[in-house]
Nucleic acid binder design. Structure first.
Length: 866
RNA sequence: GCCGAAGUGGCGGAACCGGCAGACGCGGCGGACUUAAACUCCGCUGCCCGCGAGGGCGUCAGGGUUCGAAUCCCUGCUUCGGCACCA
């Protein structure tokens, strides 16, 4: 601890030491008592600033990672407030989800109890950060007052055709039923509880039609988001343009043929090179087209594909597998019969679940053809391969082309079609166009767009989530729950043994209901919603958390949205942020909000890892708690240390090494502010101005340093560069420390520098800044007012204009000398001074400079030969 | 495999537009204060040569552009993040 009292002399009173444990709770209580940070959402006299930080999952304890995320966000809020903005910084809890349910199964504790206990704990811990959250707007997503609106949105989506039901595979354990992704463990995919082999099973589930907005979601104009996030979302959506082509099955001994087989291709120009077709094993026509002789092999393959672990299926290294159906398809462009195969490298979920295989021009098809001895026909060639032979169209098949040893995959516009009937000789892009037009004429194809993104599967076969508000009536089928019956409450008395089915099925009073339409017997939907639904609109609810006649307050969302700044982890770059954008667009189309993008600016902060470099988690035992550090150094030190560690978007492994340096810095600030007269007995030069410096020099140096620091720090806060911001404050403090006890410490410049230092420190280390501010006011006999309601100071540019600039002088790019020049001196003048310097004259040794380069007055480089 | 980010002292990192490499902090060394220790304060601290003034070498490796490159370009290596047979 600092012991400035060591410097006490009989004439001067002892100065108390810096004691964060006393200061911090006192100010936190005071701020709360004064409602200092309550945001008046209806105050229109100031510009609004909606600052959103991703709401935490209430895992139980706040770890150092939460501080790393939230603390700089709080500094931003305070910084904006000091600029006169009306800042809204809400907080809440992402309270639904699997961990609560797992706790229920493992420890026989109800998810409600577990969750609410954790939230209580985290609320208390969050307050120790000294952050300015608007607690009066808190939301908790497992509260029926919140999730009823999930249900309400779902019903609106259902009406609008944005929600629908379809079959989809889930991970299924024979003992424990449906499993979430985290419940499937290990490379061989075993159940987390019983260890049984997990398989895929098809269930009817609910989807939201996010694909309807695919094109709009690719458009990021008007929002300021990090490039990597935009790229990730763009890749996730993956729009590809091409054609859909209709093949027909050929008649044979077993079936009459004529069935349509639609394929999507980005390369219709390669149609003549299609030598076989491949269907996904799940393709609906597989059953019908399979020849009796192939039936056993096909069924075995389909079975195998279903059981295959994801790891295997995802491996691109794996050798291609597949089975012929024993049926043929007819190529619409030339009437050629080609065999139909099934193979798991064709995905049922993308395009049409079927492809035309063009082995000459697709690596995967090439590998497959080689493996199974299927023909490979080159139909695209680089222009120069054919140059000597003309006309191309007259060539016999394959003439002049070397045999392919690998697929020729090229997007060169100069490529030419060969072996393609009347299209031979066309340049590839024109060939593609011509072939599609020809197909279109015959109703056998058209241009088409395909997306990688799938509709959003929101059904979860779990308890701890929002019940999906529909019932299944024996007579009326799917019936939505009417609005006035919302919320459909989660029943409390359910069975968490976790065996087989959703706990919701174990409660007959929940399960069995009267049909809202006919009053007859009906069964409730027992699936709950993906928790990403909760987080897809929570920032709207923050504005009016207690509203009962609708999910959002139109007046407030119009005024406060879109969110000005969103901060959160990059792990949400795709799912959460894409779903949120979708939700906003969807509810804009429903007329509920009047903007189409939720977050104007996004910043991804990095992640703090455990000391072992791994993600912090209880199971790894590498969770770092801030509690002991706060107890030892205080919240301000911990806040500042987290900001100082490195760039905020970088994160990294946790190490408290160096936190003492921050604490020493705050001690120095304390000393500077309260004990400017004191001198350090350990410093031989203490109390004396540096050699050769006059009082006026010192005064100017202090003023200059303060304003230079202010200029830098202001920019650094605005750009979230907190690490260098802290470094600049340290530099200023170090400089002031040198003048402590000298006559310069009595001057107005000193006083102003201290004042600026405290104001600049206030957003980052709010408690110590407030304490020292209060003491200054008291010493000056002025009434107290909080430093956090002060205006951010202005840089005095006239001070900076007096600055002397040090200019390095290089000879052939190496620094050999330096001179001090006043700002505004001309290049010619500089050059004259430079060339007269004894050291430069000596080093030039009579040689004439070839060139003298001036880098905007920042540097001089003399270029000389030899 | 593809897409993205990044490689700088013993460590975290700084250098924002191509212009002083290593700010600031940690650690280390030396010193002051102290009966002593802790605390605090002061000085030094990239590597090599030199008593010194000073010089040489240095930003993952190799090449290039430039008066000048950590920064731009090419090739390669390593690490991290995302996606992963998307027709």
């Amino acid at each position: 601890m600092a012991t400035p009292d060591r410097a006490a002399t009989p004439d001067r009173p002892r100065v108390e030491r810096y004691d964060p444990a006393e200061i911090e709770p006192r100010w936190q209580a005071r701020w709360e008592e004064l409602d200092l940070y309550r945001t008046d959402l209806h105050d229109e006299s100031r510009p609004k600033y909606y600052l959103l930080t991703m709401y935490p999952y209430p895992s139980g304890d706040l770890h150092i990672g939460h501080w790393y995320i939230k603390t700089p966000t709080d500094a931003i809020a305070r910084f904006r407030r000091m600029h006169g903005d009306n800042v809204f910084l809400p907080i809440g809890f992402d309270a639904f989800g699997l961990p609560a349910e797992n706790a229920a199964i493992r420890h026989r504790i109800h998810p409600v109890t577990w969750t609410m206990r954790n939230i209580e704990n985290m609320r208390r811990q969050l307050r120790t950060m000294g952050a300015t959250f608007s607690w009066d707007h808190e939301i908790v997503t497992c509260d029926p007052a919140y999730y009823r609106w999930n249900q309400w949105f779902f019903l609106r989506f259902l009406e609008a055709g944005l929600a629908y039901r379809a079959m989809a595979p889930v991970d299924w354990c024979p003992n424990d039923g449906t499993l979430a992704r985290e419940q499937v463990e290990g490379a061989d995919r075993r159940c987390w509880r019983c260890g049984a082999q997990v398989e895929k099973r098809d269930l009817e589930q609910w989807f939201l039609r996010i694909t309807k907005y695919a094109d709009e979601l690719l458009d990021f104009s008007g929002i300021d988001w990090p490039e990597p996030v935009r790229i990730m979302q763009t890749n996730w959506i993956s729009r590809s343009e091409g054609a859909e082509i209709v093949f027909r099955t050929a008649p044979d001994d077993h079936q009459p043929g004529g069935d349509q087989l639609r394929v999507f291709t980005t390369r219709p120009d390669t149609l003549f090179g299609a030598t076989f077709m491949v269907l996904a094993p799940e393709h609906p026509l597989v059953e019908k087209l399979t020849a009796p002789a192939q039936r056993a092999a096909v069924e075995a393959y389909v079975q195998q594909a279903r059981r295959r672990t994801e790891i295997e299926r995802l491996s691109t290294e794996r050798e291609k597998t597949g089975v012929p159906l024993g049926a043929d398809a007819i190529n619409p462009v030339n009437g050629e019969r080609i065999p139909i195969w099934i193979a798991d490298y064709v995905l049922s979920g993308y395009g049409t679940g079927a492809i035309m295989a063009v082995p000459a021009h697709d690596e995967r098809d090439f590998a497959f053809a080689v493996r199974f001895g299927l023909p490979i026909r080159q139909v695209i060639a680089p222009a120069d391969a054919l140059a000597p032979v003309a006309p191309v169209a007259a060539l016999p098949p394959g003439a002049g082309l070397p045999e392919l040893t690998e697929a020729y995959v090229s997007k060169a516009e100069s490529d030419v079609l060969v072996n393609s009937g009347r299209f031979s000789g066309y340049a590839a892009p024109r060939g593609a166009q011509a072939i599609v037009e020809a197909l279109k004429h015959e109703g056998a194809g058209d241009i088409a767009v395909s997306y990688r993104i799938r509709d959003w599967l929101i059904s979860r076969q779990r308890y701890w989530g929002t019940p999906i508000p529909v019932v299944y009536c024996e007579r009326d089928g799917i019936v939505p729950v009417p609005d006035h019956q919302l919320p459909v409450l989660l029943p409390e008395e359910v069975d968490f043994k976790g065996s087989g089915e959703s706990p919701l099925k174990s409660d007959p009073t929940f399960l069995n209901v009267d049909c809202p339409r006919c009053g007859g017997p009906a069964r409730r939907e027992t699936d709950t919603m993906d928790t990403f639904i909760d987080s897809s609109w929570y920032w709207y609810r923050y504005l009016s958390p207690h509203k009962t006649d609708g999910p959002v307050d139109r007046g407030l969302t119009d005024r406060w949205c879109p969110v000005d700044q969103y901060t959160g982890g990059a792990e949400h770059a795709v799912m959460h942020l894409l779903y949120s954008r979708f939700f906003t667009k969807a509810i804009a189309d429903l007329g509920l909000v009047s903007h189409r993008e939720p977050f104007r600016r996004l910043f991804n902060q990095g992640q703090i890892l455990g000391a072992d470099g791994e993600r912090m988690s209880k199971s790894r035992g590498n969770v770092e708690e801030p509690g002991p550090l706060v107890a030892r150094y205080g919240a301000d030190t911990v806040r500042l240390f987290l900001m100082f560690m490195g760039p905020w978007d970088q994160g990294g492994p946790w190490s408290p090494t160096g936190i003492g340096g921050i604490h020493r810095f705050l001690n120095r600030v304390w000393t500077i502010a309260l004990d400017s007269e004191g001198v350090e007995p350990g410093d031989p030069d203490a109390g004396r101005l540096p050699v050769g410096e006059t009082y006026a020099d010192a005064d100017r140096a202090i003023r200059m340093a303060a304003h230079r620091t202010l200029r830098a720090v202001t920019e650094e806060y605005a750009d979230f560069r907190f690490n260098t911001m802290v470094a600049h404050l340290m530099e200023l403090a170090n400089l002031l420390m040198r003048y402590r006890g000298t006559e310069a410490a009595h001057a107005p410049a000193w006083d102003e520098a201290v004042r600026l230092l405290l104001l600049m420190l206030a957003p980052a280390a709010p408690h110590i800044a407030e304490e020292l501010w209060a003491r200054r006011l008291e010493a000056a006999g002025e009434p107290w007012s909080s430093i956090h309601t002060e205006r951010w100071p202005e840089v005095d540019t006239t001070v900076l204009a007096e600055e002397l600039r040090e200019v390095p002088i290089q000879i052939n790019g190496k620094v050999r000398d330096r001179i001090s020049v006043p700002a505004g001196i001309s290049e010619l003048e500089i050059e004259q001074v430079v060339l007269a310097r004894p050291r430069i004259v000596e080093l030039l040794a009579g040689r004439q400079p070839d060139r003298v380069i001036h880098a905007g007055g920042r540097l001089v480089n003399i270029v000389v030969r030899g």
